[in-house]
Computed example of a mutant assay.
Amino acid sequence: MPNKLEAVIFDWAGTIVDFGSFAPTQIFVDAFAQAYGFALSLEEARRPMGLGKWQHIEALGQDPDVAARWTRQFGRAMSQEDVRHLYDTFIPLQVERVGAHSGLVPGALAVVQALRVQGFKIGSTTGYPRQVMEKLMVLASEKGYAPDCTVCADDLAAGARPGPWMALACVQNLQIGSVAHCVKVDDTVPGIAEGINAGMWTVGLALSGSPAGLTLAEYEQADEATLQAVRDRVAPLFVAAGAHFVIDTVADLPAVLRTIEQRLASGQRP
């Protein structure tokens, strides 16, 4: 097959919608408070971002800071029954509130529209379960964004990130000829690992996602020194995870795709 890109596979929150990825992180804080009266900070809630939500709660239970406070408060470690109760509390809250954080990241729609004109297929993967995505996909479609396929964290028996399975399901659904002809774009380290493990080119987003933690207003009002400080903090996380490129937001993707196509034409692979 010709050495040409065929598809871009996007994450959702923090990548295409919900600048700063605030919907899931704030609701983790609220779910812990509602279910157990436990004080989880927003910074702690962000640490496992990119995982499936069940795995995210498990990871929080193993976080040294969270685990220590949990043990002090309850006299025991977090159990699978606790994880289930937290998950069952989280999901209705997420479904209820996901619409409040469904706005598209600036530039995202224009990039996707340009990709379609160029013949790209558009895939997507997410740490959200299907129940949440059923609502979010409708809201995003009303704003003009409707990828060719969406694979959710609870769709596959094999599991979700950081494994390759959701990204590879997109390859199958989109009928892509080679994983080397795919680009995975994500704002989290597990999402980058997903793309790496699937054999794809990967692009990390330094300013629009969960690690940056900026609201859209904060991003738009920040001076260059402030934004550079965030880049300096976040970009190394993606580089360490193996990201081939790190950019500010999805609006900066076209130039990277041109570079990748040049590399493919010269025989390079991810």
Rank of each mutant, 00 (worst) to 15 (best):
A157T: 11
C182T: 12
E81S: 15
P147D: 06
N197T: 04
A77Q: 08
V151C: 02
T89Q: 00
Q94E: 11
A77T: 12
E134L: 13
Q175Y: 08
R76Q: 03
Q94K: 06
A193V: 09
A140T: 05
G123A: 02
D88K: 12
K143S: 06
R161N: 09
G195H: 06
V117W: 09
V95C: 10
P106F: 04
E194P: 12
G195P: 11
L93F: 03
V117L: 10
V171H: 14
I91R: 03
G177N: 11
G204A: 15
G123E: 00
M133T: 09
F90G: 11
I122S: 05
G75W: 12
L104H: 10
N197L: 13
T150C: 10
T188M: 04
G123R: 01
A158N: 08
G144T: 06
G195Q: 05
A206Q: 00
E194H: 07
D88T: 10
A180S: 13
G199Y: 04
G163R: 09
I122T: 08
D187Y: 06
C152Q: 02
R130W: 10
Q80N: 14
L205V: 15
D186P: 06
S124E: 02
C170D: 10
T150I: 12
A193Y: 04
V179H: 02
G177F: 07
H101A: 13
P106T: 07
A180E: 07
R130E: 04
T202I: 13
R97T: 14
H181E: 06
V183P: 01
T202S: 09
S102P: 06
P129E: 01
V183M: 04
F90H: 12
G99A: 10
G204N: 11
G99M: 14
P147N: 08
